[in-house]
């Protein structure tokens, strides 16, 4: 479904991605783990067309995304819950969700998806007319995921959904991610919380300073010596 072939991305003259190869098949949950500054967010930004690779290809359902605008990429079916949530602070929860469906014109479909988001996150329904900026961190994360779902994507990109959340909220968010995946959504999950990410994912890639150093089945990665030492904090 999604394939990155030898992708090199730069911020100015600084090379952030040094030849990433990665693929996601329909229905899978794939996780990209790695420490701060490894290039995880850069990878998602490149897929979404917010950054352009200087070399290499991003393919989505065999279509090359390198020259496609971000709006068009959203329309093709890739939506993202970005790092730091980036909800619209002075818009209500309802308006934030509506913005997620900005590219869509099927009002009945939007309505069903809205109901679906509210069934996944009943908290958002309670806060429906509250301004996004006044929500708690966990609620903002739910809103960011809900907003991404409102685009009715076929590939959902999640950038560090656990960042800055209390442990209880983290497990709540992850169980919802599992729920979304169980409904058939394809997910590319970027996480620093490798333990949680590997429990919900089918496969994983380990990113280190812009390069993929390890990849494989999530269960295998969980027991891999290097991963355990470097990312799971085990001896």
């Amino acid at each position: 479904m999604l394939e990155l072939i030898d992708v090199h991305t730069y911020y100015g003259n600084i090379q952030a991605l040094k030849g990433i190869n990665l693929s996601v098949s329909p229905g899978e949950v794939v996780t990209l783990i790695g420490s701060n500054g490894a290039g995880k967010t850069t990878t998602l930004r490149t897929i979404q067309g917010l950054l352009r690779p200087r070399q290499g290809k991003v393919l989505f359902e065999d279509r090359e995304l390198n020259v496609v605008s971000t709006e068009e990429i959203v329309r093709l079916g890739i939506a993202q819950s970005p790092e730091g949530r980036m909800i619209f602070p002075r818009m209500t929860v309802l308006e934030n969700l509506e913005m997620g469906a900005f590219q869509r014109r099927d009002s009945t479909g939007i309505k069903t998806d809205m109901e679906h988001v509210f069934s996944l996150f009943p908290r958002l329904k309670e806060r429906i007319s509250q301004k996004g900026g006044t929500l708690s961190g966990g609620e903002q994360q739910m809103l960011a995921i809900g907003r991404a779902l409102m685009a009715r994507p076929r590939l959902l990109l999640l950038d560090e959904p656990s960042m800055g959340l209390a442990p209880m909220l983290v497990s709540q968010i992850f169980s919802i991610i599992q729920e979304i995946s169980a409904e058939g959504m394809t997910i590319l999950l970027v996480e620093q919380n490798a333990r949680m990410a590997l429990t919900v994912a089918n496969r994983g890639y380990v990113l280190q300073t812009g390069e993929i150093v390890l990849s494989g089945d999530a269960k295998e990665l969980q027991v891999n010596e290097t991963v355990r030492k470097a990312y799971l904090g085990e001896e």
Binding site: T70, E71, Q80, I87, F88, P89, M91
Partner: peptide, 22 residues
């Protein structure tokens, strides 16, 4: 929708791009 998109761009340009606003 266009007015809301204006507000969205004003509040967070990156997020506006992500939801598919030109």
């Amino acid at each position: 929708p266009a007015g809301k998109a204006m507000r969205a761009v004003a509040q967070n340009r990156e997020a506006a791009k992500i939801v598919g606003i030109n």
